[in-house]
Computed example of a mutant assay.
Amino acid sequence: MKNTFVHTNASLGVNITLGNFTTIEDDVVIGDNTCIGNNVTILSGTRIGANCQIHSNSILGGIPQDLKYRNEYTLLEIGNDNIIREFVTINKGTISKMKTLIGNSNLIMSNAHIGHDCIIGNNCVIGFSVGMAGEVEVGDWSNISGLTAVHQFSIIGEHTMISGLSRVVKDVPPYIMAANDPLQYLGLNLVGLKRRGFNSKKLEEIKAIYRILFQEKRNTKFAVQLIENEFEQTIERDKVLDFVRQSKRGIIKGYRE
């Protein structure tokens, strides 16, 4: 380890690998069996779980790029089994949520940026050079393809697939594939859902729900009522309905006319 600096107040687990020219500041906690590459900077207030891979030139726990930040004590919390590739930057939180949170078993590809107070679930793929502004939420098993820009406060539901070069300025409901500009519903994320055990009956149910949601000519509120009345209560139905009802930015568009 050449010119590597680890602050005496940092807490490192067992079997930690550190690359050359890496800096670990005080008030950092790193779990067992985590591998950290060359020229990585891990700043105060960062918590990293076990069995993670942090590749070269990443910067974790940087000061939020947000004018409301006033040096309050906030955190970046990263779970277990994450792979963070080269040149990734992840900022810690602000007074809004007090932390940025990355779950478990995520792949964050090179040059991606995750802003302050974001919440990333588990088993997500954040593609090459994805730019994610502050306070974005991403559900479990989501896949955001390369060079996508995500507007602040946007919510991306679980099991979604967003195509590369997309611009996310509205909320993206769960289970779907989205593409085009403006971003729109293109159908279910069939490949991902089948991989995770959704059977044909369940896929048809979700597809029928979205057919009403995105093709109902009156308004979204009426479509939600129609779905609630016509479909028996299931986990998937309720997740879609709850997502739409709770959306503050509004959801993406459906089929183009």
Rank of each mutant, 00 (worst) to 15 (best):
K170C: 08
N38H: 14
A10L: 10
V88M: 02
A208S: 15
R70N: 13
G127H: 01
S129Y: 00
D81H: 13
N71A: 11
I206E: 02
L67R: 11
S56T: 10
T17D: 07
T94C: 03
D32Q: 06
M161R: 02
L226D: 03
G146F: 00
F243D: 12
L147D: 04
D66L: 06
G103K: 12
I36W: 01
V172H: 04
G197C: 08
T148S: 15
H116N: 06
G197K: 11
I114A: 04
N123H: 15
V28P: 11
V240L: 11
I48D: 02
I209W: 00
S154Y: 03
G192D: 10
N229C: 04
S145I: 09
E77W: 00
Y255T: 10
V191N: 08
K68E: 13
H159L: 15
I54M: 04
K253W: 04
R167E: 11
N39W: 04
H151V: 11
I36G: 02
D66I: 07
H116W: 05
K68Q: 10
E158Y: 11
G146L: 06
N33Q: 07
R211H: 15
M161W: 11
F5N: 13
S163R: 08
E137K: 13
I155W: 07
R211N: 15
Q225C: 03
L67M: 11
H113E: 12
F128G: 08
I108W: 00
K202E: 09
K253S: 13
G19N: 10
T41H: 09
L147M: 14
V14L: 10
I126S: 08
F128W: 03
R85L: 03
E86R: 00
N123E: 10
S163N: 10
V130A: 07
A50D: 10
G31Y: 10
C35V: 14
